[in-house]
Computed example of a mutant assay.
Amino acid sequence: MLECVQPRATRLTFGRIRPSCEERLEMGNLITFQQRRLRCDLILWFRIIKDNFGDLNQAFPLNTDSRLRGHSLKLQKENFKTRTRQHFLSNRIFEVWNNLPQEIIDSQSVNIYKNNIDRHIFHNS
């Protein structure tokens, strides 16, 4: 239901002839709710990793294999048997997080990190 609000709201500003939903979002410099959820998940994960919330290795296992390419804080791929675990934070962001460059992971603050992922993910695509 929430996904329907944004297209409807952007449609109200135009008359009979209106651009597609993607064009309206681009004109308004907006991102979709799905992209916003991904962005919020990545920011939450960054805060969990950087603020050292104790031993989270049980809930969020990091891959410690030194032969991997990329940054040093890669998530370990989890095998799950239930749909509930499929939507767990680490499984939702697995692909995107593991493909981020080291420079973004090494951001000094959350605000710098937000700007970096906005540039890398949403304005690079």
Rank of each mutant, 00 (worst) to 15 (best):
Q6I: 11
Q6R: 05
P7G: 06
R8Y: 10
A9Y: 05
R11E: 15
R11G: 04
R11L: 08
R11A: 13
R11N: 13
L12H: 08
L12Y: 13
L12A: 06
T13Y: 12
T13R: 13
T13F: 14
F14V: 02
F14Y: 15
F14K: 13
G15V: 05
G15N: 07
R16M: 08
I17K: 14
R18N: 11
P19T: 06
P19L: 03
P19W: 09
S20P: 09
S20G: 14
S20T: 15
S20V: 08
C21A: 07
C21R: 00
C21D: 15
E23T: 10
R24C: 08
R24N: 07
L25C: 03
L25Q: 08
M27H: 05
M27F: 05
G28F: 04
G28D: 01
N29P: 00
N29Y: 03
N29L: 13
L30F: 04
T32I: 05
T32S: 15
F33N: 12
Q35D: 15
Q35N: 12
Q35C: 07
R36E: 15
R37F: 00
R37V: 03
L38W: 04
R39D: 13
R39H: 03
R39V: 03
C40E: 15
D41Q: 10
L42R: 03
L42E: 10
L44D: 08
W45N: 13
W45P: 09
W45H: 15
W45R: 13
R47S: 12
R47W: 01
R47K: 13
I48W: 06
I49K: 04
I49L: 15
I49M: 09
K50H: 10
N52K: 08
N52A: 01
F53C: 11
G54S: 11
G54L: 09
D55H: 03
D55A: 04
D55W: 00
L56A: 05
Q58C: 06
Q58G: 03
F60S: 06
P61D: 11
P61R: 04
P61N: 05
L62V: 10
L62K: 07
L62G: 12
L62N: 14
L62T: 12
N63M: 01
N63R: 03
N63T: 01
N63F: 00
N63D: 15
T64L: 08
T64C: 02
T64A: 05
D65A: 09
D65L: 05
D65G: 05
S66W: 02
R67M: 08
R67C: 12
R67N: 14
